[in-house]
Design a protein around this nucleic acid. Structure first.
Lengths: 198, 198
DNA sequence: ACCTGAACACCGTTCAAGT
DNA sequence: ACCTGAACACCGTTCAAGT
């Protein structure tokens, strides 16, 4: 049906078109004017649903964290073995997400913009992703594969290391799939073996 | 002396004023117009010395990497003991730099802009910083504190992990000095103990 | 060779006005 | 309640013109 004067679900449409645009042309090309045009709406219509361009970016970031948390959860569920196999699977899923959804990842982690939305703080889905990681570490502690200690702190270190590998892969060695895999496996091994010595 | 019509060293002045501006108001406030104004020059004068705004950002990034490499070198020279003490010192210096020169760090690693200049690729001082890290790892291998293997690859992993910790500190837990120290020491320990198991 | 000033094609954002 | 259109204050960049 042809859309009426009142769009109905403009908010979600703007987020979807924003994501599509960002994936096609990058963060810098993400302009309220073009998002509006793609949504067949005036370039100022977004201000009825978002206080700001930063707020729209925040919504896009939140959608990204939702997909991200889902990807981590799927990887963890698929690897039904030991702590180490789950860590490997989640690490590879992390890198794969950062590779395949570079634009998402950039918005989520503030690369290319300086919005207020932060990875762990403020994002509901980001907190969910973090909880998945924390739970995995807790399991590793239960089986004795990870030393005792605050799981939240250990999860933060793991996240930081994963982020570093993803960024290095993205910014220093783009395009090299094999090297990326080698990196994440090496980091996973460091985490596995190293965590016991904290 | 009052400056004449021909500035003389406009290029370096623009870089310096750019750095000052970015440290004061952040990456987003870095505009060619205000840089020009601060340098007491027209807003288009920069185009005589830089092809682009991205080129000026590249020069700022290069200056940042020079300071960064110097900081790492000082930390390494000051810690004249074992591999582990050097790793700790360099790790803390890394985090300190990211904290105290947030703006620099953001430009250097593409947070807040999408310029072509990349950490290891393209930056001369960045390559120097990397070489310092690689050399330290080489020494660790010589004394048996680090397992054998391609030092460049190990250095990349270490860099990635350090970057991750710095970013996490910057974006997830800003302001907490103690937590940051705890992080970098934990990561350093992971690296130390984990590197032997690669 | 180096710098300026006006001009152009973009932005985000505001606000009175339309439906 | 939701959307539009004109307007405003910004950008980066180009280019003929000045020194």
């Amino acid at each position: 049906m042809p859309r009426s004067y009142h769009h109905g679900n403009l908010r979600s449409t703007l987020v979807e078109e924003g994501i599509r645009l960002i994936e096609e042309k990058g963060v810098k090309a993400l302009t309220l004017r073009e998002i509006g045009e793609r949504a067949c709406v005036s370039r100022t219509a977004a201000y009825r649903h978002f206080s700001d361009k930063a707020a729209l970016l925040g919504a896009i970031s939140e959608a990204g964290f939702t997909e991200f948390a889902d990807a981590l959860e799927r990887a963890r569920a698929a690897a039904k073995g030991s702590f180490s196999s789950r860590m490997d699977a989640m690490g590879l899923a992390y890198l794969k997400f950062a590779e395949e959804h570079r634009a998402y990842y950039e918005v989520m982690f503030g690369v290319g913009c300086d919005l207020g939305e932060r990875p762990a703080g403020g994002s509901k889905a980001g907190a969910r992703a973090f909880a998945i990681l924390e739970e995995t570490i807790r399991e590793g502690q239960a089986t004795g594969e990870v030393r005792a200690g605050d799981p939240a702190f250990l999860a933060k270190v793991v996240w930081a290391l994963s982020h570093g590998v993803a960024m290095l892969k993205l910014e220093i060695e783009p395009g090299s799939k094999e090297l990326g895999k080698k990196f994440i496996l090496a980091a996973a091994e460091v985490l596995r073996t190293g965590l016991q010595f904290f």
